[in-house]
Design a protein around this nucleic acid. Structure first.
Length: 759
RNA sequence: GCGCUCGUAGCUCAGCGGAUAGAGCACCAGCUUGCGGAGCUGGGGGUCGGAGGUUCGAAUCCUCUCGAGCGCGCCA
């Protein structure tokens, strides 16, 4: 036969190798010939027939090993652990290849329109187990050629109530995402943003609600009414009574209490402590001032500090139970106190992306993000503030000039004061220059700063955690969808003076002329926007609808109809482990809730059936997975009792893995391949953040094991070599299961209590 | 109006442009003188909302359309 010449340009086409859905199509298949046929200027089948023998020349005598084939190294993670095809001949008929002990492949064949199907040599594939057993904590971590430092902010609810089951989804997703990003070789910083700015209307309302309860008045309209509000009010009430009766000593006593508490706490494990402690210490200082309680104003501050501090504490306690931990709890107010907000505001003004001109630009977009209309609105001189609910505040001083914030712990930290201290002009962020649909207020005419102003400083500061962070990921709830554009605009505006402008000599369009003053400005701003989109990724998780008695249950903090995450955890735990310790109950509850949240893609709405989660929770797939783990542990224990050695970790004995080639059963091969696949799943998850993939993987791995277990008896005293090989497979499976569950934040129990079966 | 998301088995949902679209629950029939039966094996069940388009090939990508959910504050 004549030697075929293949167009060399097909070298640039990526090779994809996947396990086919049909088992009789082999263990792996590649569609390369289908993809490359056009480039190669031939039909797929002919290309396959030419290519197969050409591939053969690469590796006639491969040694069995696990790891990358240099020829395939750059083609993707799964592929790198696969062998290259080798053999003679081609055609529809299966070709047997190499010798049965060491050849990677049993066969390779051309099928269908031009697929090449590979059948692995199980004995060769089993060598992968050596890798697993020798490196149980790293075998599943994919190679990462471009490791990044990433700040991930998630949960970040207001300190005015417990973590709800709604926020629970963000906690589960965010924490699991961090785990996966880390496993994929990145450096991750977990961050919680405490919305404790003294300007916050919501927090003021919260404090006023607590105060009303203390004083026996009805809470304000739209105020907070839940049980926890009363609980907080009661403890403050006790404190206040004590302080009033014994004001000269109350502060000292409370101060000592707080300090003892702090001293007894390992701060490295409780990163939120400085914030909560700061608030509580502030409260103690207040109590020490004899006249502190004389004015209504101060008492509200005091109540607010206590309420916020205790809420932050209880939130962090609940999250810790939920296997959700943070490196940094960041206080919004600290940005004001340190002057960073004012500093960044000046920066924006200096960069000409913010000003106090009395107009606002609004952009109307047509479908596809095309600008349809640009409107310039004049700013009402009066009345714009009064339209806002609750304004002007009667008894609450804001910052920036009306009054100083009530307490200071970080020295001066006042508002700087170069911009209008207390009067007249609203300061606008010209966010329409950065793709937002309207300009945003940074500073109100009365001098108070908006939430966006904090955001500017916050996002700049965030890039320091980790140092010189490559990327910020912010996980937000479904009600924050409209926030993406302005947040991106904020980041773009902040760095607008630091990026290279686009090169675009096109004159300004009619619309652009209303937004930008020059071509240069447009090119600068659009470059900044591109930079921002590149460095800030907002991940929205969709709504969780809670079903109680089959009907949607409303979930609002303010009307008290609230369902706390910790209550859900406790209820599930109570059902599952009625005789367990609190810790055991919460572990079980957390496991079920986390798995439940993580089973669905974060960006799709999900129903959370409260009956199912609490009452019928043994139907939850998490038990299926955990049962597989417990079962393996049991088998291993039993095997060791029977004198079968298990080669793991430091006890790895030379030669003890020499029988792995006996693992030739189809179920054994399937299990080995599934374990091998974990690395690939993690790599993909780190790319597209679809953490739910790992729950699916865990279920499939468990199923593959159960199926193997049913077909292949592990402990067979008359076949010690096979037993040992299968035991190694069991341990490798256990290791992979444990790794997957750990990433999900779900425990991998060594044993599980049998459920009581109704008779 | 604009934006985001979803529509796949009776129900809840998986599904990386590939070959005959999968799992759990529910239903039916089996499996243990053997390592945990919370398990395994098999079966019935589908116009992947609809219509076009791109492609050798579409549940997957594009456009349109129908239906459902959510979001668009000088709130945070």
């Amino acid at each position: 036969m004549e030697k075929q010449v293949i167009d060399p340009s097909i070298k640039s086409i990526p090779i994809e190798i996947e396990p086919p859905k049909q088992a009789d199509h082999g263990d792996f298949a590649t569609n390369f010939c289908l993809v490359a046929s056009k480039t190669a200027k031939t039909n797929p089948r002919a290309l396959a027939e030419t290519l197969l023998p050409a591939i053969l020349a690469i590796s006639q005598n491969r040694h069995p090993h696990v790891g990358g084939d240099p020829a395939l190294e750059n083609q993707g993670s799964l592929n790198s652990s696969l062998p290259a095809g080798e053999g003679k001949g081609w055609g529809i008929n299966t070709q047997n290849i190499g010798n049965p002990e060491t050849s990677p492949l049993l066969s390779a064949e051309i099928a269908g329109p031009g697929f090449i199907n590979f059948r692995l040599n199980p004995a060769w594939a089993a060598q992968f187990l050596t890798e697993v057993l020798e490196n149980p904590t790293t075998f599943y971590k994919p190679k990462n050629d471009n490791p990044q430092t990433i700040n991930v902010e998630f949960v970040s609810v207001n300190p005015n109530g417990p973590i709800t089951i709604g926020s629970g989804r963000g906690a589960a997703f965010g924490s699991a995402l961090c785990n996966v990003l880390e496993a994929a070789g990145n450096t991750v910083h977990r961050e919680y943003y405490i919305n404790d700015g003294v300007n916050s209307e919501q927090m003021r309302l919260f404090a006023e609600s607590v105060k009303a309860i203390i004083e026996g008045r009805p809470v304000p309209d739209n105020g907070y009414k839940g049980d926890y509000v009363h609980k907080t009010a009661n403890s403050i009430s006790t404190l206040l009574n004590f302080a009033n009766v014994n004001s000269e000593r109350a502060g000292d006593i409370f101060l000592k209490f707080v300090q003892d508490f702090i001293n007894a706490t390992d701060l490295s494990e409780y990163p939120e402590m400085p914030i909560a402690a700061e608030k509580l210490l502030g409260l103690a200082e207040k109590l020490k001032q004899a006249d502190a309680l004389s004015s209504d104003h101060s008492e509200l501050e005091l109540i607010r500090y206590f309420a916020e501090g205790s809420m932050v504490r209880s939130q962090s306690d609940d999250l810790r139970v939920f296997q959700t931990n943070f490196d940094t709890w960041f206080s919004e107010q600290s940005l004001h106190d340190s002057g960073l907000v004012e500093q960044e505001l000046q920066h924006l003004l200096a960069s000409n992306v913010a000003d106090d001109a009395p107009t606002r630009t609004k952009v109307v977009f047509a479908k596809g993000g095309i600008i349809k209309e640009v409107l310039k609105e004049g700013q009402p001189i009066d009345g714009d503030v009064e339209n806002v609910e609750g304004f002007p505040p009667q008894d609450w001083g804001g910052q920036g000039g009306v009054e100083s914030p009530p307490l200071r712990f970080n020295g001066e930290g006042d508002q700087g004061g170069e911009v209008s201290q207390s009067t007249s002009s609203t300061i606008w962020l010209r966010s329409t220059k950065f793709g937002d649909d309207q300009d945003r207020v940074l500073k109100r005419a009365d001098g108070r700063l908006t939430y966006i102003a904090s955001d500017v400083a916050y996002h700049k500061d965030k890039f320091n955690r980790p140092a010189n962070a490559d990327k910020l990921i912010t996980v937000l709830g479904p009600d924050h969808h409209g926030y993406i554009a302005r947040l991106t605009a904020v980041v773009a505006a902040m760095f607008s003076d630091q990026v290279a402008p686009l090169v675009n000599p096109e004159p300004l369009t009619e619309h652009e002329a209303l937004i930008y003053t020059s071509i240069a400005e447009r090119n600068q701003c659009q470059a900044a926007l591109a930079w921002a989109k590149d460095h800030l990724e907002v991940q929205i998780f969709q709504i969780v609808r809670f079903l109680k008695d089959g009907k949607p249950a409303p979930m609002r903090k303010r009307d008290g109809n609230i369902y706390a995450l910790i209550d859900l955890i406790n209820e599930i735990g109570e059902t599952l482990k009625p005789d367990g310790t609190t810790e055991e109950k919460q572990q079980a509850g957390s496991d079920v809730a986390r798995f439940f949240y993580l089973m669905r893609h974060h960006d799709t709405a999900m129903d959370f059936d409260l009956e199912l989660a609490t009452k019928q929770s043994d139907e939850n797939p998490v038990f299926y997975v955990q049962y597989a783990h417990a079962r393996i542990c049991s088998v291993i224990d039993k095997a060791i009792e029977e004198g079968i050695s298990l080669p793991i970790g430091e006890g790895l004995r030379e030669g003890s893995l020499e029988y792995l080639h006996l693992l030739t059963h189809p179920k054994e091969l399937a299990l080995i391949l599934k374990i091998c696949d974990l690395q690939n799943e993690i790599a993909r998850t780190a790319e597209d953040y679809s953490v739910n993939r790992l729950t699916t993987y865990a279920i499939e791995l468990a199923r593959t094991y159960h199926s193997f277990y049913d077909s292949c008896r592990v402990i067979q005293p008359d076949q010690p070599e096979l037993s040992q090989a299968r035991l190694a497979l069991c341990e490798a499976t256990r290791t992979a299961l444990q790794a997957a569950l750990e990433l999900l934040g779900v425990s991998a129990p060594n044993r599980m209590d049998r459920a009581e079966r109704p008779t």
